[in-house]
Design a protein around this nucleic acid. Structure first.
Lengths: 112, 112
DNA sequence: CTGTATCCGAACCGATACTG
DNA sequence: CAGTATCGGTTCGGATACAG
């Protein structure tokens, strides 16, 4: 997907691309949680953002594929994992912060 | 929705709120088109971003409800419309610009 | 031209049970 | 604890025809 586009790509196509990577109901929420509160285990994330394991698993896999997070298996018993944002994901920090403040602000705006 | 949330809202909930307003496959693409290239008619938007009329209509209605765009009916024959971003939507311009540049940049990043 | 109505397949996603 | 398998419901969205 998003391949075979004309070279004369323009702005809204770039937005399309971005949405393809971090769009959907959960990816930015997950990244936001990791960015603002640091690395988390699978279970911590699951509770924190109230998402079912099936979906969380899928989303984390996709984020990892896009090099936005890393998965580390801890040598515990039973096994535990640790998900962290990559340095590359730092490039999204500004985007995430804007989303957060816009969310707060919009809730006020809509009160009418 | 997104009402009845606890007052101790936190970052990922704010992101959730933002995504509720401008999330989905099309809203930011539409806003991006309007922000970067100015007001457009229904048909222009439809061609520009390659979206079916049914979806476009629905998305525009929702954006209007959230006070992000305005719809103006022109006194032509046959009738035409003009969709524009509101001043309020300017608060999203920064977000949109980041999305655009991130989209371009990510395409490079992923080339491996 | 600007939408709406209908149809219908695809994607999404939540719950739950279960394996290692 | 971490994650997968299965199931089923809901939403999404594309195509098309059509009405004002």
């Amino acid at each position: 997907m998003n391949i075979e586009k004309k070279p004369c790509d323009n702005a809204y196509l770039a937005i399309h691309d971005t949405l393809y990577v971090i769009g959907g109901k959960w990816k930015l929420v997950i990244l936001g949680a990791l960015v603002t509160t640091g690395s988390k285990s699978f279970g911590e994330l699951s509770k924190m953002i109230d998402i079912s394991p099936r979906i969380l698993s899928k989303e984390l896999r996709e984020l990892e594929l896009n090099k936005l997070i890393t998965r580390k298996v801890l040598d515990t018993k039973p096994i535990m994992t640790e998900y962290s944002v990559t340095p590359y994901a730092e490039s999204l920090r500004e985007l995430i912060n804007i989303m957060i403040s816009w969310g707060y602000q919009h809730r006020e705006e809509i009160k009418d």
